[in-house]
Amino acid sequence: MNNELTAVYFIWKRELIRFFRSKSRVIGSLGMPFFLLAVLGSGLNNVMEVSGGNYMDFITPGIIAMVLLFGSLLSGITVIMDRQFGFLKETLVAPVSRLSIVVGKSLGGATTAIIQGILILGIAMAMGVAVDLTSIPVLLILMLLVSLSFVTLGVALASLMEDMHGFQLVMNFIVMPMFFLSGALFPIDTAPEIVRYISYIDPLTYAVEGMRYLLLDYSYLPLSIVFGVLGGFFIITTSLAVYLFNGIES
């Protein structure tokens, strides 16, 4: 048992070392959300009227959710890179369970995604977005839940893929639709019926609404539904990740 925990710790640490060592990854991951906030947020601020505040405030929780989605899913998908560069074999033949490898990897990916999320929150605040700081502890728990769900989704997808070719597919058919349908950039309650229904099956919607509730004190979804749905999603993705990762033969 002790050995398994040590393994989890070392795999988690490896993710962090790799994250902080590649400066381009840190900067690159913050580039797009920054431009979305700075350009879209300030550009549309004066023409868009959304319930509960101005447009820049409105999209801030959405952008943070996006950072979590991108950061976590990418971390999960690095399993493919580990496979291509051979390192995965080294972990697979070590006398530790596959579960520990998935747990370490997921915690590591979630940690780096949350760091990115907090950085973008700081940037938003520096740009004048007023947020409710009293809810930060709950926000962190929500961020952890969201990140873990998407890292494990990434691990599950990566376990199915042979190489990086499938990555574009994931970006175009999972990540981007998830983001655009989540209500990160527009209010869902006033969207056309069909869009609204589709966005209800998008887990990111609940992440966005949860954060909106915590940071801006308004949302059309109660926090209990947010945590309920995301909790269920987390259980599904984690089970999938563990199951599919177990099936990998090197």
């Binding site: 050995n3 710790y9 051979g86």
Partner: peptide, 25 residues
């Protein structure tokens, strides 16, 4: 020792060895 390389290039030699040692208890 695998046919293909299996080190983590982003880590130092020490970090690679340390992680291995830890995983092998």
């Amino acid at each position: 020792v695998f046919q293909d390389f299996s080190l983590d290039e982003e880590l130092t030699a020490y970090e690679n060895l340390d992680m291995h040692a830890a995983m092998y208890g």
